[in-house]
Write a protein that binds this DNA or RNA. Structure first.
Lengths: 182, 182
DNA sequence: TGTAGCATGTAAGCCGTTACATGATTGA
DNA sequence: TCAATCATGTAACGGCTTACATGCTACA
């Protein structure tokens, strides 16, 4: 039985504590920036701390120490609730907030050149994102074997890389179509 | 000079009023559900009304009528501010909230069968999303020529369809990898 | 010695959702 | 006549961000 219904981000952060170590709030934020941010959110520092407080109050997480250097680890109850949440609650469909697509939709409001410049800028941004994710993926090498702790993070990182490549290819094609339509 | 900095969703709704017609709040919500929802958000009914009120107060939208059947149209100032927003404000990178990827990341917490079932469920959900978007795309046929009003919406719909197909293909591959790893 | 990163929070406020309330119109 | 849909809001609240505050540690 789960104690409480928490927002997904709570479970996401809780989940980042299931990889065998215990972290400070600051380190947890770093881990979120390396993983969650690609397909969930990069919560603000202040939110990481407030979520940790809530998770602690609910007994899903235990704190060790006081003040600077305090670390947090997941409890047995936390592990149980997390597994329950993963198995029993509806998954929901992905939500995409895509400002480039939004502005392309409204392309008739500006010059075609503006739209084109925006799409090209997006291609640059995509390239940067790819190299950031590629670094993350590389950092998992060695622990991504079948039994390895980071097998699933590696699967997700591969997913992300393919996803970004698909986006790049689609946007490149859109550039051609917009150029052709001018 | 733009009057005010508004949230993106405001401009998104404002943008839906640039297609040559004037709409009631209810109709605007329907249009958002058919277009915005695939790559931005489907704002709640109540938000559509409150955004329309705000846009009216800022003079970006003009209301015609009172009470039931009140319609809204974009003003000249609204058109100007929207174009300014599109050209001058930073676009920002897409934000993806992907509960399936999140749960795959934490796959080591549950049975492989649970993960597999989740991925298969996602493939079903994707198929439904594709057919919904395909209908939208079809409804644009005829007005999607180069000069047509719905050329850009059609471009975005095509983007969405390719995007969903890429996702389907990636998830299908993940299913194979998860099966193989059991 | 000064700056960048490490580290931990509080407070205010906006965006957006859910729940609630109300009533007209249409069609089975 | 009943239900579904059309239609328009208000109120409460939660999630999350930004801004602000504070101080330590490492290193150039």
């Amino acid at each position: 039985m789960p104690r409480q219904d928490l927002p997904v981000t709570s479970y996401a952060l809780l989940g980042l504590l299931t990889f065998g170590d215990e972290l400070t709030g600051y380190e947890l934020k770093q881990r979120a920036d390396m993983t969650l941010r690609f397909y969930w959110v990069a919560p603000a520092m202040s939110q990481v701390y407030s979520e940790l407080r809530r998770l602690t109050e609910h007994g899903l997480v235990a704190r060790r120490g006081e003040g600077r250097g305090t670390t947090y680890r997941i409890t047995e109850g936390g592990r149980r609730d997390l597994a329950h949440w993963m198995r029993e609650t509806p998954v929901g469909f992905p939500v995409l907030k895509h400002p480039v697509a939004l502005r392309l939709l409204l392309g008739h409001v500006v010059d075609p050149d503006d739209t084109l410049a925006m799409l090209l800028g997006h291609l640059d941004a995509l390239a940067e994102e790819v190299s950031a994710l590629r670094e993350v993926r590389e950092s998992l090498r060695g622990a991504d074997q079948n039994g390895g702790v980071f097998r699933h993070p590696a699967l997700v990182a591969d997913w992300g890389l393919e996803y970004l490549e698909a986006e790049r290819s689609i946007v490149a094609e859109l550039v051609r179509r917009v150029e052709a339509g001018e």
